[in-house]
């Protein structure tokens, strides 16, 4: 039947759309199943005599969190200064440049810190996770886990997911602080506002809600990065080239998912 359909260009086009849609839905289903399975092992692993190992979680936390501190600091600091520069430049039009703190505080904490942290973690740890799983699958290491009676989701995925869900919000909080500090230093130099006065104003403007808005979002990003990377890594085929492909795909898809989710989250929460 498929052979007959490919003769007509229009039919071929429709067929391609259909196949793409089915593949997309399949992948979404795989993501859902993976989240479900991971939660299942975290909750009932001990009862099944296959607990999720704390030490494995810590190893992942070191890789995902501690290892990312320098680059997150650099990026968050740069974005803080960039926001201060643009804010002052824009507000000068109205002669209101002293109000720049309001813009900086809200945009760093609610938007830029979670976003930039998510993107960095997707690029660093998401790609590493996809490449690791892909290589393990090609080398039959996943099969080896199966035949040893070790569930790969419990052994490989659950620690990575837990580590990301802890470390991405932690890194976001860290980049909040670094971003605000860097912006404060620039504002101090440019407008002569002291750092103490700047932080007084920041604390006055920000509520716990704003902070939680950013942190909540970042926890969601963590799940997205882990799941997208694992599903891509596990779908590898075709040797080293395949691993390269799924790694690229994992990073592109997680960053896209992060940005889209960010917009939807912001829309829903500000209703």
């Amino acid at each position: 039947m498929a052979e007959q359909a490919t003769e007509n260009p229009a039919a071929r086009f429709v067929e391609r759309i259909g196949r793409g849609a089915v593949r997309g839905i399949e992948e979404l289903g795989a993501c859902g199943m993976l989240v479900f399975e991971t939660v299942y092992w975290i909750v009932s692993g001990r009862r099944m005599r296959q607990p999720v190992r704390i030490d494995a979680i810590f190893v992942q936390m070191m890789e995902t969190g501690i290892g990312a501190i320098p680059i997150v600091a650099l990026m968050a600091g740069t974005i803080g200064v960039m926001l201060a520069i643009q804010g002052i430049h824009t507000l000068k039009i109205f002669g209101a440049e002293t109000q720049v703190t309001v813009g900086i505080a809200f945009s760093v904490v609610r938007e830029f810190a979670p976003l930039i942290t998510g993107i960095i973690v997707a690029g660093r740890s998401g790609s590493a996770l996809a490449a690791r799983l892909g290589t393990m699958k090609i080398n039959q290491e996943i099969d080896a886990l199966h035949v040893m009676g070790i569930n790969p989701v419990r052994f490989l995925v659950a620690p990575a997911l837990v580590a990301m869900m802890v470390m991405v919000p932690a890194l976001t909080l860290f980049s909040d602080l670094v971003g605000l500090l860097a912006a404060g230093l620039y504002v101090g130099v440019d407008l002569g506002i002291s750092l103490a006065a700047y932080f007084d104003r920041v604390i006055e403007i920000l509520s716990v809600d704003d902070l939680m808005h950013g942190l909540g979002k970042s926890a969601l990003f963590a799940v997205l990065i882990a799941v997208v990377s694992v599903v891509n890594g596990a779908s590898v085929s075709g040797g080293a080239e395949g691993v390269g492909k799924v790694t690229t795909r994992a990073v592109v898809q997680s960053i896209s998912a992060i940005v889209v989710t960010d917009m939807i989250f912001a829309f829903l929460v500000t209703r």
């Binding site: 690791r132 080398n139 039959q140």
Partner: peptide, 13 residues
């Protein structure tokens, strides 16, 4: 059961 895979499948990490 024990399995010795063709390429070894030792965990490289």
């Amino acid at each position: 059961i024990g399995v010795a895979f063709q390429g070894g499948a030792l965990f490289s990490s």
